[in-house]
Design a protein around this nucleic acid. Structure first.
Lengths: 242, 242
DNA sequence: ACAAAAGTGTTGCCCATACACCCATGT
DNA sequence: ACATGGGTGTATGGGCAACACTTTTGT
């Protein structure tokens, strides 16, 4: 009996497409990859081969925690990618094998979407990785490692669909207190729409747990907008009662 | 440098949740698994370890073709399952190792939904596998191999969601010519609803490519119902023009 | 006073739902 | 003639889209 150790037995990794929102633009978190001897540098999605006794969700949680120090991040698996050619680029292979000290035959990767509040102070500079936020629109002009462009595009399409059926996920991208304009900008940025101010407010305020505060934003050079917050507990309770 | 061959390097498989509809009930296709020396038998989803140079979609296509002889089956990847315990049942391990002649450490599986027209004549009796249709409702009373109950449940939930945004997928489950009652039964079975006859027809007939024929069903002991068909080309063309 | 953005209600239209009776066929 | 399921239209209400002016604040 052969054991599981034939060369073509694929490795399994998890790649995370991490979205953030700075109040104006939708951002994606990319790892800077440098290959020094070639004086080459590009970008890739955060990701890792899964550990021996790790479930997929756990791997995604670990990757994000290692990268950002955060816990309790919104995570959602969206699709797996297993094209045999996805790891055949010679630069990617060399880089991987140098990093992991493992001879890589093939990698099937499970894609996750993560949503994080960009305001949370994040340490992106760990021992050997640097990450930065990039504008979603700039993605087209990057050639990411592996098939990460395809994965990022699929993730974007996925959250577009998902916002329709579960708009409360938007609050994962906003600070604890936010303005209606921020919320609407976020929605429109993701959906590619330009919503009417009044209609948007009417619709969005139907979400249980979203409430207006008796507070306004400070230090703005015009009429101060009111603040809102989203109480996830109230939201979940109301969903159960349906 | 180690090569990829450590014991815990997971295998990757594809499992297919195949749905069919007999005009009344929603069915799922399950493989009969017998372990002779234990005089034991149960059921599992169709699935296989992926081949060396095979993409995930290809693997799913191959599995279904080997099982049914059919090509051009509607397929949609819906989720991957990687709990390290999913292959730890000793019965499952022994069965797998005997079948594959490979020592199995761990398997991450990619779940696909397949929709097939139950009318298509299918050879379910290949050399070493037998498959049968089972009522969806009977799933609860089976204890399937591995975590296949969980996978089947997730698949069912997935198609429920998907029918909402893409109701034309229902036609994959119906014969080329079908009645409005069959279509409505199918919809209601999946969605768990009981639609009003007239309202349902109005809504569904909005789908481009669905057309009423000048033909009725034969050999029915009551007023013969009219037949409909769905033209996928017309449908796709109309979608592009939006 | 002016610039910049926030905030607020009403109307019309369309789509979704509710609902009941007659028709065709086989026994 | 009767039993079985097939087939059809209208009226109503609720939700969504369109739309413009006033308010607040800082300079």
């Amino acid at each position: 009996m052969r054991n599981s150790t034939n060369t073509y037995n694929p490795h399994v990794s998890v790649d995370c497409v991490v979205f953030g929102f700075n109040g104006e633009k939708l951002k994606i978190l990319l790892i800077e990859r440098t290959i020094e001897e070639q004086n080459f540098s590009d970008k890739k999605l955060p990701g890792s081969i899964i550990f021996e006794e790790e479930d997929l969700d756990e791997a995604a949680t670990r990757i994000l925690n290692e990268l950002t120090g955060l816990k309790n991040i919104y995570l959602s698996q969206f699709r797996s990618f297993g094209n045999p050619n996805r790891t055949k680029n010679i630069r990617d292979r060399n880089w991987l094998e140098r990093l992991t000290k493992i001879k890589i035959g093939r990698i099937v990767t499970v894609g996750y979407v993560a949503l994080i509040k960009i305001s949370r102070k994040i340490i992106f500079q760990s021992e050997n990785t640097t990450a930065n936020w990039y504008d979603i629109n700039s993605l087209k002009s990057f050639q990411l490692a592996f098939d990460h462009n395809e994965i990022a595009d699929a993730a974007l399409e996925y959250i577009r669909q998902k916002v329709k059926s579960e708009p409360s996920m938007l609050f994962e991208l906003l600070p604890q207190k936010f303005t209606m304009t921020q919320l609407r900008n976020l929605y429109d940025t993701i959906m590619g729409t330009t919503s009417d101010v009044r209609n948007f407010k009417k619709k969005i305020m139907q979400i249980e747990g979203l409430e207006q505060l008796n507070e306004v934003q400070k230090d703005v050079p015009y009429r101060a907008p009111r603040l809102y917050r989203f109480d996830k507990k109230i939201y979940k309770k109301s969903k159960k009662n349906i």
